[in-house]
Design a protein around this nucleic acid. Structure first.
Lengths: 335, 335
DNA sequence: TTGTAGGCGTTATCAG
DNA sequence: CTGATAACGCCTACAA
C-alpha cells in the first residue's frame, strides 16, 4: 500500500490511531487536549497524522461534543464600512481562537433577520453576533431559550438580549447638535437614512435642537443603506430652504460627502454658509478636501470587543451586559 | 407534561416522530423530500414540528448525509468594495438555495490563505469560493484531491483549479493604455497597489505603453488594500515628474480619487494637465466631482455568477472552466 | 408511501 | 496517561 494514496476526507481518526498504534481517543486528545498525552505518544500520533494527511472532521466532532466552534454573524449588509469593519475584525479575532464565522445578510428587514436567525440556529452555532438590539418577542424568547451567547453590536437603545457592545445613537445626535450650538449655529438641517440607528441619531439631533429653542429648517429621510448619491440628492432637495447659515447633520460620512460635493456645485460656502458634520469617520471624510467633520466611532474596535465578549461568554464568564464604546466628535474643515 | 417545555435544541427528530405517530425517517422526508410523503402524513408531521418547536440539527444531518449545505468563502478583505460586493451577492444567492457561507479573511497573504483553506476544509464545506487563481502546488493538489467544487473569482491569469469567474487584468491595463493613446496621450504614470491583480493591471498598462513606444514618466507601488490616502501620497510623490501632460492609471477608484484630490490642491488641471482613470467603478468615482473615468467591472455580478456556477457544480453539472466577465472603460470627466 | 437497521466520525465518560 | 464503550441526531439503503 503506497503512502499518500489517501484523499484527505477519507482518512479518519481510526486510521491515524491504527497507524500510530493507539486508540482513537488518544488521537483526539493529541488534537484537543495535548497536555493530557505523553510526549512520545503525541509525537507518534503527530507523525501518523502527517503521513496520512489526516484532516479532522469538525462536523463529526461538533455533533459529538455539541460545540460547533462556529459563530453566526448577521448584519444588514457588508457594503457599508459601518458593518464591514466590525465583521472583518470580529472574524479575524474569532479565527485566532479557532472559531469560524458564518455570515448572513439581513438587509435592514426585521422579518428577514428573524428568518436568518432561525435558519442559522439549525447549524447549532456556539454564539450569535447580531446588529442592533431591537428583536421581535418571538425571536427574543427563542434566543433566551437557546441559552446561546448573543452579542449585539452598535446599539444600546433597547434592553440587550445578552451582551451588547455599542453606544446610544440618540446621544450622538444630541452631541452633534450641542457641538453646532456651541459654534453659534441657530439653524439646522438633517439628512438621514431610514435605518433604525440613523433614525435614532436624527431624532436625538432634532430633539436637542428643539430643546435649545432653535430652528430646524429642513429634514430629509434617505434610503438605507445611504450613499453619496443620496447625500447629493438630499442636499439638492433642501437647498431652497438654506437661506440662513445652516448646520447640517448627515447620517453617515457618505451622505455628508455627497452634501459637500453638491454644496460646492451650488456655490454654497462650506462651512461659512453651510456647516456639515457626518457620522462614522470613514476614510473618505478624512481624506477628501476639505476634510469633513464627523463623529468617530470605531467599527473595527466594536468588532474586536464583540469577539472578546463572545469568547468570554463561551468560556462561561458572566460578562457585563452592556458595554459602551465611546464616540467622539472630530471637528475638521466643514464646521 | 406541559407543551412548550422544550428548549429548541433539545427537541429531536424522534420526538417529532413520536408526536406525529410516524417513524423518524418520515419526519426527515417531510423536511427534505416532501414529494415522497402523503399529504395527510405530512400535515400531521408539520403540526408536530410546530407544536414542539422542532429545529433540525444540520450538524447531525451533515454528518449523516455528508453534505454540509455550507460554502466556505475566502477573500483578502471585505473592507474594499472589490470583495465586499461579490461576497454580499454570493452570500445572498447561496442563502436562497439553502446554503450558508462561512467567511474567512486572508489579507493578501498566500500563506494565510493556505492556512485558511486547510482550516475550513475541516468543516467539510460543499464548495469553496476563493479569490484569484494563484495557488501553491500543495493547495492545488489538496483541492483537486478533495474533489470539491471550487469557484475562483476576479482573476483569469492562471489555470483555474475548477471553475473561474473573472477577467484578464493585464488586458484591462492594456485597454486603459490604448484608451489614453487614442486620446492623444504620450506620457503616462501608474499608481498601483501591491496586490496580485493590481500588479497585473499595472504591468498590462506599462507594457502597452512601451509597446506604443511612449513614455512612462512615473510609477509607484502602494500598499494593499489601497486607500484614498495612498492615492494622495502617491500623487505627491510623483508630482515633480509631471512636467508634461500625463495620463495616470490608478489601481482602484480610491487611488484615483486620492490622486484627483491632491491634483486639485496642487493646482494641476484635470484632465488638461493630468488625465486620471481609476478601476472598479466604485460609487465614489461616479458621485464625486468631477466624476472620475474608470473601468467598470461588476463585482456584484461576479458574486452572482459565482453562486450560479457553484450551485451548478454542486448539482453535478460539468460547467465551463473559465467564465469571462466583461469590463468596460467608462470615460467621464477626468479624461 | 412508510418503516427498520445501521452507520456517518468524533468525543464524553468512566475504567484501568 | 491511555483505552473501551456508548452516544451525538440524522440520513442512506434497503425492506415491506
Amino acid at each position: 500500500m503506497r503512502p499518500g494514496r489517501t484523499t484527505l476526507a477519507s482518512v479518519k481518526i481510526t486510521d491515524v490511531a491504527a497507524r500510530a498504534g493507539v486508540a482513537p481517543m488518544t488521537v483526539s486528545r493529541v488534537l484537543n487536549t495535548p497536555d493530557r498525552v505523553s510526549a512520545p505518544t503525541a509525537a507518534r500520533v503527530r507523525a501518523a497524522i502527517e503521513e496520512l494527511g489526516y484532516m479532522p472532521n469538525l462536523i463529526a466532532g461538533g455533533l459529538s461534543s455539541r460545540r460547533s466552534r462556529m459563530i453566526a454573524a448577521i448584519v444588514p449588509t457588508i457594503a457599508s464600512p459601518m458593518f464591514s469593519a466590525p465583521v472583518q475584525t470580529f472574524t479575524d479575532a474569532m479565527a485566532v481562537a479557532g472559531y469560524h464565522v458564518m455570515l448572513a445578510l439581513s438587509g435592514y428587514s426585521e422579518e428577514s433577520e428573524d428568518a436568518q436567525i432561525r435558519a442559522v440556529l439549525a447549524r447549532r452555532p456556539d454564539g450569535l453576533l447580531l446588529t442592533g438590539a431591537h428583536r421581535s418577542p418571538a425571536i427574543r424568547n427563542l434566543l433566551r431559550d437557546s441559552n446561546l451567547p448573543v452579542v449585539e453590536i452598535w446599539d444600546t437603545a433597547e434592553e440587550p438580549t445578552d451582551v451588547l457592545v455599542g453606544f446610544d445613537h440618540a446621544e450622538v445626535g444630541a452631541a452633534v447638535a450641542d457641538f453646532f450650538v456651541r459654534q453659534g449655529h441657530t439653524h439646522f438641517a438633517a439628512l438621514s437614512a431610514r435605518d433604525p440607528r440613523a433614525t435614532l441619531r436624527r431624532k436625538g439631533f432634532v430633539e436637542r435642537v428643539a430643546h435649545h429653542g432653535l430652528t430646524l429648517v429642513a429634514e430629509r429621510i434617505l434610503e438605507a443603506p445611504s450613499s453619496i448619491e443620496d447625500g447629493r440628492r438630499g442636499l439638492r432637495q433642501i437647498v431652497g430652504q438654506l437661506g440662513q447659515r445652516t448646520a447640517l447633520f448627515g447620517s453617515s460620512d457618505l451622505v455628508a460627502f455627497g452634501a459637500l460635493t453638491e454644496a460646492k456645485l451650488h456655490g454654497i460656502a462650506v462651512p461659512d454658509q453651510l456647516a456639515i458634520c457626518g457620522f462614522g469617520d470613514f476614510e473618505i471624510s478624512r481624506a477628501c478636501h476639505p476634510p469633513i467633520s464627523t463623529v468617530h466611532v470605531d467599527g473595527a474596535e466594536i468588532g474586536e470587543m464583540a469577539a472578546r465578549e463572545m469568547l468570554a461568554r463561551i468560556n462561561g464568564a458572566a460578562t457585563s451586559a452592556r458595554i459602551s464604546v465611546p464616540f467622539q466628535i472630530l471637528p475638521r474643515a466643514t464646521t
